[in-house]
């Protein structure tokens, strides 16, 4: 094999490596982001389902704990700049917390949670201002729709 031929063989291998690496990097980045997205979407859905289920069937303390878990998680996602941690979701989580506090007759905590919910809704829908009752009945309807979707 002449020197020229050796050079062309090595060059072919290097070109292959480089072209492969370019596609590999793109694929690796895409996979990593998709993986994060799917994982966090699942986590968001799991914590929301859990909060809804506990709200319906558990005592106040455990329902509150589940609502706080969802809020904590959504805030973490929001700080991470993830779509799943959007303000609307946080708004609904606080409405649920307010309803739990209402059932425990904790008026101040209920008020604080509703104010917080309104604050988050204002961020996502600045034009609309929902009343307390509208927010609560919307959440109940959403829960019912989710329950029907499961059946």
């Amino acid at each position: 094999m002449t020197r020229g031929m050796k050079i062309s063989v090595v060059t072919a291998a290097l070109i292959g490596l480089m072209v492969g690496a370019v596609f590999g990097v793109k694929q690796g980045v895409w996979l990593s982001r998709s993986f994060d997205y799917v994982e966090l979407m699942e986590a968001s859905a799991a914590s929301a389902d859990f909060a809804a289920e506990q709200f319906k069937y558990a005592d106040v303390a455990h329902a509150r704990e589940a609502a706080f878990l969802q809020i904590k998680f959504l805030q973490l996602l929001r700080r991470a700049g993830h779509d799943q941690g959007d303000e609307k979701e946080l708004g609904w989580a606080y409405v649920r917390l307010a309803m739990i506090e209402k059932s425990a007759d904790q008026k101040e905590a209920e008020r604080a949670a509703l104010d917080k919910a309104r604050e988050y809704f204002r961020g996502s829908h600045p034009a609309e201002e929902l009343t307390d009752d509208q927010m609560k009945s919307a959440l109940v309807q959403m829960d019912e729709a989710m329950e029907r979707a499961r059946l």
Binding site: A12, G16, A21, G24, G28
Partner: peptide, 19 residues
């Protein structure tokens, strides 16, 4: 060597980029 290099480069770079 061209496709083999491409495949190895793809796998190696993909893993490194993912991590």
């Amino acid at each position: 060597l061209l496709p083999a290099g491409g495949y190895i480069g793809y796998l190696a770079a993909g893993r490194i980029a993912f991590r």
